[in-house]
Structures are given as structure tokens and as C-alpha cells.
Design a protein around this nucleic acid. Structure first.
Lengths: 337, 337
DNA sequence: TATTTTTACGCAACCGTTTTCGTATAAGCG
DNA sequence: CGCTTATACGAAAACGGTTGCGTAAAAATA
């Protein structure tokens, strides 16, 4: 059961190590016949190149790093699916890192990438993250980055997002159209561009409707979501409680349902709800949740595809490019008919 | 911006490469003072060891492979969370592979592991998988495996599961207690032990209740779940339609709700439902779904912890050990009160 | 047929660390 | 004070490939 290496093959076939290596990498320097012999024996012996030796020699690891805040989240889970499918197709391996929204963890993870562990990075920024000098450094070091969903607009690279502004605008408009007079906006971060875009869509829709946005209706949960309950509850039992909610992130949808149940508020009677969400169960909630459904899988795919493209033409730098894949407003029963 | 390697440090500090290497790995051969100097400069220069060179030399990659069927699934997403937390704590990297229930993909992934890419493997078997000779081979090659949730009982290694038999038994008993006379069991695989355990729990509960299980009430979805609809629908509009369902996997819960809606069956009036599920939204479905909630996060943690333990005492083989973390029956409104 | 080009392969350096020894110096000991 | 034992470090051989370059033989060209 002694490990079989490229030397084993070389000896067995009476070839030099370099020839075997080249044969396996399908080099033009090697005759078809030899390639056949090599591959045959390799298959027979169940030989697989040592990825670490290979990476060391070739300076390429065929591995990408995926850095995301969470995995227990329909959006990210779907995105991973998209990413993985593209990666697998291209023979790339996927290293997954969870930041749990912590900037420090994010930084540690990225610092490790200085080592060359990954050929490229797919990333969705943590909620906490403000400055991104450590990302800049990595990019300067030549590691291609593609951001998806939660991006830094001022970084010169490919970014895959959805039409956050328009989606929020449309969603808000829909609520207004259904008679909402006072709509609450639930944000999950003050610094993320995705968040401010959604916020602006919401604000502009309200203004366009001839209303004046109220600061108090914008609630931001920058810390733990567990703080959502008391805040939400307080807001929803106030005298001037809102009659509509736009939640800018999936995780905030359920707390609303919970609070409504506790406070005996009817949905959509007392409160109409729309949430950005990819919950499979949205249609079976009580009542079914009207959602802004993001093309999560496609975003993941697109991000991975962009990265693969950059990785192919080695050494090329990704230029700034903003790819927008639109979301869909799926109207269900949490808003009036 | 030239890559800084261990040689850079060595030269700068007037030390040999080996000394620097040892210093960084905290070898006892090196004086505290030297270690300090080395680490200081390393930090200053932002030096990170090249993982591939390191792995090549040390024959250890500090990387584990996680092979699972899906990621868009609350159970697996939570499990990944558990795994990742333990891995990160121990300085291990996590390579994720999705089989999408395909035995062939699973095999390809595992065959690649022959290369030594990962130090150990955490795995939940694909639905399709029947024989596991390729797993045996890998284990023989000395790569530690820990199985979680979907295990092979006849493999001699650590397996982390939940109490599938008892959970199914209890769930079924609960349905029977609520007056169900004919309970359908939705299975997702004929070969998986997890599946047959749940099935037996169900069968035994029925028998214990003095009823005779009906073959026709056990429906297995071995292929795509999309085939679930027609089958379910047919069954639920038959004359002798069941008045209870136990779904052995989360993915099957929503289709039931769908069919009930289509057929205008009331839940739990016409049909009581229990599903194995970790859906966060279970409590907010219409009606709230009674679930067998698995300790997904804990299972992930336990699996990773067991693997870490094996990885620490290098070269040790994992003995057969079955760790069972119990599930909880969470009673909600899809079963009668 | 002599000469140039192609084809197919081997040699050897290199990738960046780890690790096994060997050893000079310092320390401990009777 | 001579001898053993630690201590702290360096030299060099792996680790298992990749790759640039050199070259003999075969093919193409003149």
C-alpha cells in the first residue's frame, strides 16, 4: 500500500518523471501514444497527483476561497450551490469560510490568503466591515476577487449584485399601492452599499408617492439579530405604529411574524409585509410572505464564472464590472390583494 | 512586492532557513529569544507560510473535506456551521463538496482524496450510494473518516447520528395518539440506514398500536423529489387516503402542504403532518409544522470534534463508535391538539 | 543527399517548507 | 578539570511534482 507517486509511474513505464508529468498535463510535447500509456497506468494504479506538490511547482492551487457571512441562510446556501456547480465543472476546489458577520474573522481569513492558498476569492462582505485595506493588499498581490451581493463599490473588480435599489423601490411602491401610509424599513447594516441602496429605493418610493419619510421608521440592526424582537415589538405597539414593513434581509422576516403573533396584529390587515428573501417556505407561511426573491443561485454562478474567466487568462486583472441580475417581486398574501 | 518566503526571514535575521522554520513551529530546539525575533519579523512582514510547501514537507494539510448531498437544506447548513466552528477553532480549513445525491459525484470526490488533499473527511452519504468500496480504500490508506447523519453502519469508524428509530417511533405514536388510523410514511431512500431506521420506528409504532402497516402507505422517493407531487397527490386523493403523514426528510414537507392546498385538504383536520425538519420557519407555516427537530449544529460539531481528536494523535485509527444525539419532537399545529 | 525543422523525450533546477542529523558551544557533574 | 549532557543552530536531503532547456532521432525541405 506504499504511496504511488509519479516516480512509480515513470519507473513502471520506463519513462522519465518529466515525461510522465507532461503526459498527464496533456502537453503538446508528448506523443499521443505515450499519453495513452501514461493515463492508462495512472487509472489502473488509481494514481492522483499530489495537489500540494503540484501547487508548489505550478504556483496554482486550483482552489478558490469563498468568504461569506453565513450559511444558514437561503440566499447564501443557494449561492454556494451556484458557485460549487461552476467550480466543479472547472475542476476547482472550494474552500469555505464563514465570517459570522465579524470583521475580525474576515480579516484573519483574508490575511491567510496571502499565503497563496487560493487562486481567487469569491466574497460577500460581512455586515461589520468598514475599511477594506486588507482586501486591497490582497488584490495588489495579484489575487483576483469577485464580490457578490454584498460588495464594496469602490473596489476595482467584478461585482455581481441584484437590482437592490429598484427592487426596494418596487416593493415599497407595492406597499404604498396597497394603501400603506407608514412603512417601516428594516436594515441590517449601515455601511453596506447593498443596504443603503435598498434604503434609498425605499425612501425614494415614499417621496415619489408624496409622503415624507420618517427617520423613526428606519430601523437598523447592526448588532445581533436577537435584538430585533424588543425593538420591533416596541415599534409595533407604539401609537403611531406602521402599517407596512419592508425587511431588507431574510433573517428579519420571521421576527416580524413572531411579533405580530404576540401582539395579535393581523397580516396583512394591520401590517403588510414584504421581505427580501429566498425562503423556500415563503409561500407556505401564515400568511404566505410577499418577497423580493433574489436570483441567488445565478448570482453565485455568475460570480464563480467571472472568477474562472479571470483565472484562465493567468495574471490578468479583473476590471471593474458591475453585473446586475434582477430580483423578482413575488406577491403573496402578506400584502393586500 | 516580491513574495516573502522563509528565506527572506532567514536572510534578514542572519539565521538558517531551518532555524526559522523551527522557530515558527515553536520547536524546543530553538531559544525563546530567537523565536521572538522570528515571530516579530514575520508579523512585521506579514509573512504567512506557504501552505502547499508546508503540506508537502509535513504530510499534513490542515484541511478537512466535507462531503454532503446538499447545502440548501437546513440540516446540512446547520451542520456546516457546527463543523466550521470546530475547524476554525483548531486551525483547520474546510473544503466543501456537494454530491447532489449522486453516487458518481461522490465517488469522484473521494477518489481525489487519494491524493492526500485532506487530512480527514466528514461525510454524509448520498441517497444513491450503495456500495462503499471506494470509501474503504481511502480508510485503508489511512485517511480518517467520520460519518454524520447518513452513515454506513458497517464501516468501522465514528458515526454521529440522531435517534432515528425512536424519533420516528415517537412521532408516529404521536400521530396515532391524535387519532390517525392510516399514516403515510415518506421515505427518501431505500438503502440508507437512516431511512430504514426511521421506517422501522414508524412500522413498529403502528404495530404496537395494534394496527397493521400497509405497504402502500410507504412511499419512497429515490429519484428526484420533483416526482413527489404526482405520487403524493394521487395517494391523497385516493378513496382510502391517509389521515396522517410522517415525512422522513425536510424536503418532503413542503410538497405535502402544496398538495393539501391543491386538494383542499385541511391540516390537521383531514391530514395530520409531522416532518423531520430543521426549518427555521416551521413555526410560521400555515399551519405551524410539527417537526422532529434534529440537533444539526451539534451533530456537525460532534463530527468535527471527533475528527479533530483523531487528527491530533496522528496515525491513530478511528474505532467504531456510535454517538447518538437525540432529536426533539416539537409539537405544533399540523397535528391535532 | 545534405540541411533544416519537428517531434518526443530526458536532465536538472526549482517551488517553499519540514525534518533528520551532525556539531559547536555552554552547562552540569563528580 | 575532564567528561557527559543539554542547548541552539545549520547543512542537506527529502516532499512530489512542474518546467525551461537541451538533444537525438525522425520528418520535411531544398
Amino acid at each position: 500500500m506504499s504511496k504511488i507517486t509519479i516516480k512509480t509511474l515513470a519507473k513502471e513505464l520506463q519513462l522519465s518523471v518529466s515525461t510522465v508529468s507532461k503526459a498527464m498535463r496533456d502537453s503538446h510535447e508528448i506523443s499521443e501514444e505515450t499519453k495513452l500509456r501514461v493515463n492508462e497506468l495512472a487509472r489502473k494504479l488509481n494514481y492522483v497527483v499530489n495537489p500540494y506538490a503540484s501547487s508548489l511547482g505550478s504556483k496554482s492551487s486550483k482552489t478558490i476561497g469563498v468568504v461569506i457571512p453565513e450559511v444558514v441562510d437561503s440566499f447564501f446556501a443557494l449561492a454556494i450551490n451556484g458557485i460549487e456547480s461552476v467550480a466543479q465543472e472547472n475542476g476547482y476546489h472550494v474552500l469555505i469560510y464563514l465570517t459570522h458577520e465579524s470583521q475580525e474573522k474576515e480579516k484573519n481569513i483574508l490575511m491567510d490568503f496571502e499565503s497563496g492558498r487560493v487562486d481567487g476569492v469569491l466574497m460577500s462582505v460581512s455586515r461589520e466591515t468598514l475599511d477594506h485595506t486588507y482586501i486591497d493588499e490582497l488584490m495588489l498581490a495579484g489575487i483576483p476577487f469577485v464580490f457578490f451581493d454584498r460588495v464594496f463599490e469602490d473596489i476595482e473588480t467584478t461585482q455581481i449584485t441584484t437590482n437592490d435599489y429598484e427592487s426596494a423601490y418596487l416593493a415599497t411602491q407595492h406597499l404604498l399601492g396597497k394603501g400603506c401610509q407608514q412603512i417601516m424599513f428594516l436594515s441590517f447594516s449601515k455601511n453596506l452599499s447593498i443596504s443603503s441602496k435598498r434604503l434609498h429605493g425605499y425612501l425614494d418610493a415614499i417621496t415619489a408617492h408624496g409622503l415624507v419619510p420618517d427617520k423613526n421608521d428606519v430601523i437598523s440592526f447592526d448588532e445581533d439579530f436577537s435584538e430585533a424582537y424588543p425593538g420591533l415589538k416596541a415599534r409595533l405597539q407604539a401609537i403611531n405604529r406602521p402599517d407596512g414593513v419592508l425587511a431588507s434581509v431574510e433573517k428579519l422576516a420571521i421576527p416580524i411574524y413572531q411579533v405580530c403573533e404576540e401582539l395579535n396584529l393581523s397580516i396583512p390587515g394591520n401590517l403588510q409585509i414584504i421581505s427580501f428573501s429566498n425562503l423556500e417556505t415563503a409561500a407556505y407561511l401564515n400568511p404566505p410572505l410577499t418577497t423580493v426573491t433574489q436570483p441567488a443561485f445565478e448570482i453565485g454562478q455568475a460570480a464563480a464564472a467571472a472568477l474562472m474567466k479571470a483565472l484562465k487568462r493567468k495574471g490578468s486583472v479583473l476590471i471593474k464590472e458591475e453585473i446586475v441580475i434582477p430580483s423578482t417581486l413575488v406577491i403573496r398574501k402578506s400584502t393586500k390583494t
